[in-house]
Design a protein around this nucleic acid. Structure first.
Lengths: 199, 199, 199, 199
DNA sequence: TATGAATGAGCCTTCATTCAT
DNA sequence: CATGAATGAAGGCTCATTCAT
């Protein structure tokens, strides 16, 4: 939303949840476009068609916005991933698991600059609602796999972090230098050597 | 070095390499203590017993300092790691490789806050002298292993990045929540399942 | 407005045109008082009873302020000069022209240090809105004179610059060493020998 | 003189007048090249093949250098102009005068950016050795002309300033927008209408 | 006389956050 | 709820000048 358009706009009175969501979605765009280092509060409100002060009616600080953006992003992802995996796993855990891994890599690649804002940056240490934590998600998949006998019996929580890191590194690499196929092959090579129950 | 002490100090004229090193070492301390986000140019010069302007005789910008810190850190590490691995690998590649992995994890854990400043942060994308790049180092070890037949024939560059990421994640986890033994076990479990030549 | 007073002041919310004008007028005072070389952004905002940051809501840089000050000064001058000359010229071009020349000299003398800031200094090369350019004004007067036959047929644009320079030099001289009458006499002597149509 | 060359140079012990002149001449080049606003002490010493501190052995401050540069420039000019005019004036004052005016315009045009540094800028108000003052020079010429009856009897000092200003303005105009012939014509038109004794 | 490392005051500019309307 | 003008702390960087060698 450019400034010219804004100048023509009236004061828009929206219900709080709607306004909040508009700000978050505007932030998604701004963080992608300008990058997390250059993004400013005013960029977000401008993109959302709101006044600068309005920001602070919905978020106590810039970091709080980032937390909300992260939550929005992950909960959206989880909402579609969870039922999809559940359905697929019933007919073959490993296939379903691999599929989700590939899917997650694509998701992270698609985030572009955004992923720095939510996975690194100032909120990297802030606790994440377990319901949408990537680690927990992966841990859940591993647990299913171990219980069904399709996966080796690994230390679930630690392994989940390692899986996450492997997926994440693969995504970063693809985003930086491309060469998607080779990187995915290496990743799958690792996962297949490491996780499936032998035999 | 507090400001009060500074007021009492004479002008210290040092040779450029020495002054530069003092600034880098002061930066190591400051980045650890205040964290990479809060550290400022003046913190570094104060800690180094130098005037603010002196900083800019040696570094064109804050980011340039970070690059120098990174180079200092890695080249120091590499200088001792390379001969050590070379010697150890001759009597058993896998043992030597595992040892270096564990050693590197400890190194990263020891960096504490510093590792954010040099591995993430604004210089994350800046090219690194290949001679001291962690990826290249690991790639070198893998190559030796593959050539000697001790390691599976993996895609070296991609695998090196994955190894690095696994070590790094393990170190981060230990730094955050402790539980060193369990995390190292998981890491080794992964590496042993993935890399050694079967049989 | 001293800092102590400022501390007691409330936040003054003004409409942008008003605040902008207050800043410009504060700048007029500061440039006169401290001189163009020593004047700083903070002097202006302090004199205007505003916070330092407010400056940058209205001017992108110090030079932009100078441009605005120049425009303010000249357009104010032009607004009263133009109708005055028009009226006077109808009953006698040369008398009207001489009067405006004398008037302009007094105006420049009255600027004091200010004239360095707007006529020399870093914005000397910046283009000026032709509607308020001194050269254009003078050229306009000359054109009227030539058309009415009261003035010799000179190269208008070039002559206008020379007239301006003569007025300006006279003003500078008066500002520096006084002796107003003698300098004005010399100036008029030059103009009378040069411009009026002989006979 | 580039830095590389400097690195190869020994400490050069020169007689003070020579070193001083080298600095002044280096300054001439630097002021032309970088412009008076951007020129720095270090640029001058570097161009002169001297160390930064050496500057202050010869000039108390940056402004003092500018004064010295101005004196150098003008005294060089005067040294050749004075005898030339003296010789030419004996056979025809007006022709000699016009010739010197044109010559001076070319001189100022040739100064380029330099003229800002010496005629405007921070030393504009500093007194000038009368022996090399442009105003005095011109006044000298006018006096000769008046005494010989070739020039109208004008107020010498004031008129000299006006002549200087007219020459200077013409030079500035040529430097900025070219069109040399037309501007010189206008200038001569003014001078011829103003100064020669009628008849 | 010469060097060049060191100093530190000074200034601009940004931008998260506040608050009068 | 909304606005957007105002704030001011913060910090990067420059460069004339000094001084230990």
């Amino acid at each position: 939303m450019a400034k010219k358009e804004k100048a023509l706009m009236k004061r828009r009175r929206l219900s709080p949840p709607v306004r909040r969501l508009e700000l978050i979605e505007a932030a998604l765009g701004v963080l992608r476009t300008r990058g997390p280092a250059a993004a400013r509060v005013e960029d977000v409100t401008e993109a959302a068609g709101a006044a600068k002060g309005t920001f602070y009616l919905y978020f106590a600080s810039w970091e709080d916005l980032l937390v909300a953006v992260r939550a929005h992003l992950l909960s959206t992802y989880v909402a579609e991933m969870r039922p999809r995996f559940k359905a697929a796993a019933s007919s073959g855990w490993w296939t379903a698991f691999e599929y989700e891994c590939l899917h997650f890599v694509d998701f992270v690649v698609g985030l572009g600059e955004l992923h720095k804002a939510v996975f690194h940056g100032p909120i990297a240490d802030r606790p994440l609602d377990p319901a949408i934590s990537s680690d927990r998600l992966i841990a859940g998949m591993l647990r299913t796999g171990i219980e069904s006998g399709a996966c080796r019996s690994v230390e679930i929580d630690t392994a989940a972090r390692l899986v996450f890191s492997v997926l994440h590194t693969t995504a970063d690499g693809i985003a930086q230098t491309g060469d998607r196929e080779r990187k995915l092959d290496s990743m799958l090579d690792l996962l297949r050597a490491w996780l499936p129950r032998p035999g």
